[in-house]
Computed example of a mutant assay.
Amino acid sequence: MKKIICITVLVFITSSFTVSKKIEALITKEVKSVFSVETFQKQHISILNDIRKELPQKLTEFNFFKVYNNQKLLGYYYYGQAYGKADYFDFIVIFDNNLIVSKVKVLVYREDHGGEVGSKRWLNQFSGKSKADNLIYQKDIAAISGATISAKSMTNEINKLLKTVQILHQKQLL
């Protein structure tokens, strides 16, 4: 009985830190589209725990990757979650090899209201932003009526990511 419980707990813990096949397929589609490639390889970015602790954005071996094609660095991508009014939503940020945001896309939005945060037009505001940018909601990033919480949350998450990328670049990890 103890063995079954241990295995069940281990499976639960392992599966809770991985990306579902559906999300992975959406990420693959976006990465291929942004970099105009048929295939790519991803490599987890290793970060020592002492550096990881000083980063504003939590990075794991499942959410931040270098993207290669034929051993050539194309860029990076980050898979994250932001909070809406009552639930989290999943998004991806794709950077070029100069750490400039190429694309931001909401992959899964789980609420009835606020889905406008996933509109291409609104998300395009993040394209071209870099590690040097500090985005201010309602100044640099337009507000969305009916999606205020999601839009603020997304802006905050992208800001944390840009600051994280800046720190990693300064430490020559990117």
Results as ranks from 00 to 15, higher is better:
E30W: 09
H44E: 15
Q81N: 11
Y83L: 11
Q138R: 13
K120H: 11
K66S: 06
L123F: 04
Q71W: 08
K22Y: 13
Q41F: 11
V117S: 04
K22D: 09
F91R: 05
F62R: 09
T14L: 14
L55Q: 00
S20P: 08
E61A: 10
L74P: 02
Y137D: 11
I141S: 04
Y109L: 08
I27M: 07
V31M: 01
T18S: 11
I94W: 02
Y109E: 03
G115Y: 12
K72E: 13
D50G: 06
Q43G: 04
L59D: 01
A82P: 02
D133C: 07
V67G: 00
Q71K: 12
F65L: 07
G146I: 10
Y76H: 03
K66Y: 10
S127N: 14
L123Q: 12
Q57N: 09
Y88V: 13
K105A: 13
V104W: 01
D133A: 10
Y68G: 01
V67P: 00
F95Y: 09
L26S: 09
H44N: 14
D90R: 10
D140T: 10
L55D: 03
K129R: 08
K42L: 03
Y79K: 08
A132L: 15
G84P: 02
K58P: 03
I47S: 02
Y109D: 05
K129E: 06
K120S: 12
K66N: 05
A25P: 03
A142V: 04
N98I: 09
G114H: 04
N98T: 13
S16F: 10
G84N: 05
K22E: 15
F91Y: 14
V104I: 10
R52E: 14
F65K: 00
